[in-house]
Amino acid sequence: MTGWHASDDLVSRYGDGSLPEPDAWSLEKHLETCGRCASRVSRAVRETAAGVALAQVREAVLGAAPTLPTATTPTTTQPHARPRARPLALPSPGPRLAHLLWAAGPAVRGAWLPAVLLVAFGAVALAYGADITGVRPLLLAVAPVVPVAGVALSYGAHADPLHEIAASTPSAGLRLVLTRTAAVLAVSVPLLTLAGLLVPSSDAPGAAAWLLPGLALTLASLALAGYVDVRTATAVTGGGWLCAVLAPVLAAPGGHLTARLAEQLQYCLDGAPAQGGWAAAAVLSAVLLAARRPAYDRLERR
């Protein structure tokens, strides 16, 4: 027992998950020795929507799989257990892998992965099955926005039915956003690059020319998400890229569409100046992302 006790505002913010991680961890340390505050926090947690949902999820899980190890809930026996930590109480074996798959979220499930496969294998099928020339420029024009779209579809209440609980975990905020972004890149980069290598082209940039632009656009989307919501940020960056690439092609008179697109991509992607510019943009976006780190604790909960 200590002489200091948590204020009502601190308890309330802890319960709804809006308390920054350093303050939350400090409070949790205090709760280990203060039964009075632990009781207040437990009551506040149980009254939140996350607490109610967590209790329902726990009952359903325990009812479906009685062999799972018992997970403590916010009760009077351990009142400081935050509801945001409970979905991570996974059974052995392989809890780390299950935790990683849960954190990756919609990036490794749902409709996004089939869409990436459709883009990659569709490009190869058009090039060889339909004998269509100029497929690589089309693929390179679309590839940089694929991970951007994946970020938009992998974070937020629209994508994850457990978003409210996930957003209240100690791994939420920027850490969770980066985890899901890494999963998006891990899926899209090898598939699209391999498709670019398999698609023949003599006038378009190399198959890997889109990697730095894709990374820069993804980081720019995350940096912009510190000011607006994720979907708006990705719409701005992804839409800006498509406008910058396609607008001059559509506006130019005469010539074959894919040939004009290949020329535009040569200007945007090919050569040291273009790639250096994308690398600088990626570094700048990463710096802005780090500078705005506290803003991601409230991402999609504003």
Rank of each mutant, 00 (worst) to 15 (best):
T2F: 11
A6T: 02
S7N: 04
D8A: 15
L10Y: 06
S12L: 08
G15A: 15
G17V: 08
S18M: 07
L19F: 10
E21H: 13
W25R: 14
S26V: 10
L27Q: 03
E28V: 12
K29L: 15
E32T: 09
T33Y: 13
C34D: 14
R40L: 13
S42G: 15
R43C: 04
A44N: 00
V45F: 11
T48A: 11
A49E: 15
A50F: 03
G51L: 05
E59G: 03
E59L: 12
A60F: 04
V61S: 10
L62F: 11
T70R: 12
A71V: 12
T73I: 09
A81S: 10
A81L: 13
P83L: 05
R86L: 14
L88E: 13
L90P: 03
P93L: 05
R96Q: 13
R96G: 15
A98N: 00
H99V: 07
L101D: 03
W102T: 09
W102E: 13
A103N: 10
G105P: 02
A107C: 12
G110P: 02
L113N: 06
L113R: 04
P114K: 00
V116T: 01
V116P: 01
F121C: 14
G122T: 02
G122S: 12
V124P: 00
V124N: 01
A125T: 13
A125W: 11
L126V: 02
Y128P: 00
Y128R: 01
D131R: 11
I132M: 14
T133V: 14
T133I: 12
R136E: 10
L138C: 09
L140I: 01
L140P: 00
A141G: 05
V145C: 03
V146K: 02
P147Y: 03
P147K: 05
V148Q: 05
V148G: 09
G150W: 01
G150D: 11
G150E: 09
S154P: 01
Y155D: 04
G156P: 00
H158Y: 12
L162V: 07
I165M: 10
A166N: 09
S171Y: 11
S171R: 11
A172N: 05
A182Q: 07
V184M: 06
V184F: 11
L185Y: 10
V187P: 04
V189L: 15
P190K: 03
P190N: 08
L191Y: 00
L192V: 06
T193Q: 09
L194S: 11
A195L: 10
L197T: 04
P200M: 07
P200S: 09
D203I: 07
A204K: 01
A204V: 02
G206A: 15
A207V: 04
A209L: 04
P213T: 01
G214M: 06
L215E: 03
A220K: 01
A220Q: 15
S221K: 00
A223C: 11
A223F: 10
L224F: 09
Y227G: 14
D229G: 13
D229K: 07
V230Q: 08
A233F: 12
T237N: 06
C243Q: 08
L246N: 07
V249T: 09
L250Y: 09
A252Y: 04
A252W: 07
G255A: 11
G255P: 00
L261K: 02
Q264S: 12
Q266A: 14
L269V: 01
L269A: 05
A272N: 03
G276Q: 06
W278N: 00
A279K: 01
A282I: 07
A282P: 05
L284A: 15
V287W: 12
A290G: 10
R293G: 13
R293K: 13
Y296D: 05
E300P: 04
